[in-house]
C-alpha cells in the first residue's frame, strides 16, 4: 500500500440498538483505485461495515475525538457527512429498495438534485450515468418494468450520477442469471472507481479484485492479495 489511502476505517466497532455486536475493532485501509472484495458468512458484518462508509450508521463519538472513518483524509462527522455521501456511492443489495422513484430518470436524478446541481448539469449527469451502465434510453421506464439485472445496473447508475470516488456495493451479483452476472462483471471492471464489494461470489472477487478482506463475527480475520482465496 504505497499510495495514500482514500478510505480508512480505524478500529471501528458497532453494536446495534438491540444489543447485537456487529463490528469489533475493524481496520481497513483502501488505496485509490483499489478494488477490494469483502467476504464472510451472512451476519459477519459486511453490510454493517458498508453502511458505515458513508455515515448511514455511525459509531458513537470517541473520547479522544478520533473519527472511525476517514474518506480522502477527511474525518466523517456531522459537518462532513453530506460531502462524504457524494464521494462514497453505496449500492444496496436489493435494487427495489434503491430505486424508489417512479421512473429511472427521477431515480438517477435524485442524488445530483440533492447535491444542489443546476438543471442542465443534472440532465447531463443522468444521461452520462445511464450510458456508463449501458442503460441509455431507459429514462422514462418504470422500475417495475425492468429485469433484476437491469435494476442492478440502474441502481449503480443512481450513485454514479453523483460522481463518487468510491463505490461500496452490497452483493452486486446475488440473484442474477449468468448473462446478467457477466454484464455486471464487465461493467464493474470497466469503472475506474475505488471499490469495496461485499459478496459471496468468490469467482467475481477473483475476476475483479486485487485484494480480499474476510470478516468473521465482526472482525477482520484475513486481509491480503486475492491469491489467498
Amino acid at each position: 500500500m504505497g499510495e495514500l489511502p482514500v478510505l480508512e476505517v480505524i478500529d471501528l466497532s458497532y453494536t446495534y440498538p438491540d444489543g447485537q455486536r456487529a463490528l469489533r475493532g475493524v481496520d481497513l485501509h483502501v488505496a485509490a483505485g483499489e478494488k477490494v472484495g469483502l467476504v464472510g458468512d451472512n451476519g459477519a458484518g459486511k453490510s454493517t461495515l458498508l453502511l458505515h462508509l458513508n455515515g448511514i450508521l455511525r459509531a458513537p463519538e470517541r473520547a479522544h475525538g478520533q473519527a472511525a472513518v476517514r474518506v480522502a483524509g477527511q474525518p466523517l462527522n456531522d459537518k462532513t457527512v453530506r460531502a462524504i455521501r457524494a464521494q462514497v456511492g453505496l449500492v444496496f443489495q436489493y435494487p427495489d429498495d434503491q430505486l424508489f422513484s417512479p421512473t429511472v430518470f427521477d431515480d438517477v436524478a435524485f442524488g445530483p438534485l440533492n447535491m444542489g446541481l443546476a438543471e442542465a448539469e443534472v440532465r447531463e449527469r443522468v444521461a452520462w450515468a445511464l450510458q456508463q451502465v449501458g442503460a441509455h434510453g431507459y429514462e422514462h421506464r418504470m422500475p417495475q418494468h425492468l429485469s433484476l439485472g437491469e435494476k442492478k445496473r440502474v441502481a449503480i447508475a443512481t450513485v454514479l450520477a453523483m460522481r463518487p470516488a468510491i463505490l461500496a456495493l452490497d452483493e452486486p451479483s446475488a440473484g442474477l442469471d449468468p448473462g446478467g452476472r457477466r454484464a455486471l462483471l464487465a461493467l464493474l471492471s470497466s469503472l475506474p472507481q475505488t471499490m469495496v464489494i461485499a459478496t459471496h461470489d468468490l469467482a467475481m472477487v477473483r475476476a475483479l479484485c486485487s485484494r480480499v478482506v474476510v470478516l468473521e463475527a465482526g472482525s477482520v480475520v484475513v486481509d491480503g492479495p486475492v491469491a489467498v482465496l
Partner: peptide, 17 residues
C-alpha cells in the same frame, strides 16, 4: 429505502426539476 435515500444525500427536502 430511507437509508438508500440518505445515502444519496437526502436531507428532508424533496427536490425536483
Amino acid at each position: 429505502i430511507y437509508q438508500a435515500m440518505l445515502a444519496r444525500g437526502y436531507d428532508g427536502a424533496i427536490r425536483s426539476l
